[in-house]
């Protein structure tokens, strides 16, 4: 029994399926380390981690929905609206940072739940339904903000002519979330790791996580085992909404203002990060640490390519390629 007769081709396949993304990450780091002089510095890695913190949290929102077999393309839309809302409540309504954030999180949750309800009630395709929801959320953001970025004591044209100055500020405590440092580690990076660990524990070590995965992997069997499938889907969409909203808030904190167009650009990165994560350790399903690795891979690509002077627009080509490769790898790990 001791000797195994797995042949070389299979062994390679198993290794690629299990560690493919980790290896890819290693290769990308090594490559950039060789060709760009300042890449391998603690400072740059801190930079990269900071730059992926928002995307990671946002991708985790998508990951949780995917775990329940539900697609939620609206995460970026929800993030945009929740971010703008939190900033608006502070700047225009002078609410505290905590109150504003909590309201924004609740709104995000409700938006997620609404998509879930819609998908289940009308039995429509979740990919398209959530795409529709993304447009609604973007429209809501533009309507709410009047198309203006929101910042402390902002000035906006008033309906009667002239200008109004906002009475409130985005509080320093709020901005600390996105810009502060704890020793040498940026605050958003700490927050990101906390969220990763929480999502990981939730999905893997709680009964709700098990049920969500079960619903995602065979809804019919889960239902016939007595699991309230629809309830769990709505639950997953709600969590997805909360995480997306939190990512939106974090983005505002990082930038110090609500930049209304900022989160829209993150959709592809987000889908890529989640899907790249599937194959992490051969799990073949959405998972928290995998999503982080996926986000890191994307972030490092962007960082390295930028240092090499590759333009943003060209970077999209590389992002797309990585997404496609990751899909192929995750296919292998499901075999």
């Amino acid at each position: 029994m001791g000797q195994s007769n797995i042949n070389k081709g299979d062994l390679l396949r198993i290794i690629v399926a299990k560690y493919g993304v980790v290896i890819a990450l290693g290769i990308v780091i090594a490559l950039f380390g060789i060709i760009t002089p300042n890449f391998m510095s603690v400072g740059n890695f801190t930079n990269i981690l900071r730059s992926i913190s928002v995307i990671t949290v946002l991708s985790l929102g998508l990951t949780v929905a995917l775990a329940a077999g539900a697609f939620n393309l609206a995460v970026t839309g929800i993030a945009g609206f929740a971010g703008a809302l939190s900033a608006g409540l502070m700047v225009w309504n002078q609410l505290s940072a905590i109150t504003s954030s909590v309201i924004a999180l609740i709104v995000g949750m409700l938006m997620g739940a609404a998509i879930g309800l819609f998908v289940i009630y009308f039995r429509v395709d979740d990919l398209l339904a959530s795409l529709g929801a993304m447009y609604i959320a973007q429209g809501m953001t533009l309507t709410y903000t009047g198309g203006l970025n929101i910042y402390s004591n902002m000035i906006k044209p008033s309906p009667g002519g002239g200008f109004t100055t906002a009475p409130g500020r985005i509080s320093d405590g709020f901005i600390f979330m996105g810009q502060g440092m704890v020793g040498v580690i940026p605050m958003p990076v700490i927050i990101m790791f906390i969220v990763i660990v929480l999502v990981h524990i939730f999905l893997n070590n709680t009964k709700w996580g098990r049920n969500i995965y079960s619903v995602g992997s065979n809804p019919e069997a889960a239902y016939l085992a007595g699991i309230p499938v629809n309830g769990y889907k709505i639950f997953a969409y709600s969590l997805s909404g909360i995480l997306a909203a939190f990512a939106g808030i974090l983005l505002v904190a990082r930038l110090g203002s609500a930049q209304i167009a900022e989160s829209q650009a993150l959709l592809l990165d987000c889908v890529a990060a989640s899907y790249i994560g599937f194959s992490f350790l051969g799990q073949g399903k959405p998972n928290a640490f995998g999503t982080f690795i996926g986000a890191a891979l994307m972030g490092i690509m962007v960082n390295g390519l930028s240092m090499l002077g590759v333009s943003y627009t060209t970077q999209d080509i590389f992002k797309g390629i990585i997404l496609l490769l990751s899909l192929a790898i995750s296919r292998l790990s499901q075999k």
Binding site: K207, R210, N211, Y213, S214, S217, N218, E220, A221, A222, L224, A225, G226, I227, G284, K285, Q334
Partner: peptide
């Protein structure tokens, strides 16, 4: 089709209705 989560392990499949109890 109606019973198994084919990608999950034996424990998972045996406990599918009972996660809450454990």
């Amino acid at each position: 089709k109606e019973g198994l989560l084919i990608k999950e392990n034996l424990i998972w499949n045996m406990l599918l209705p009972s996660f809450g109890d454990f």
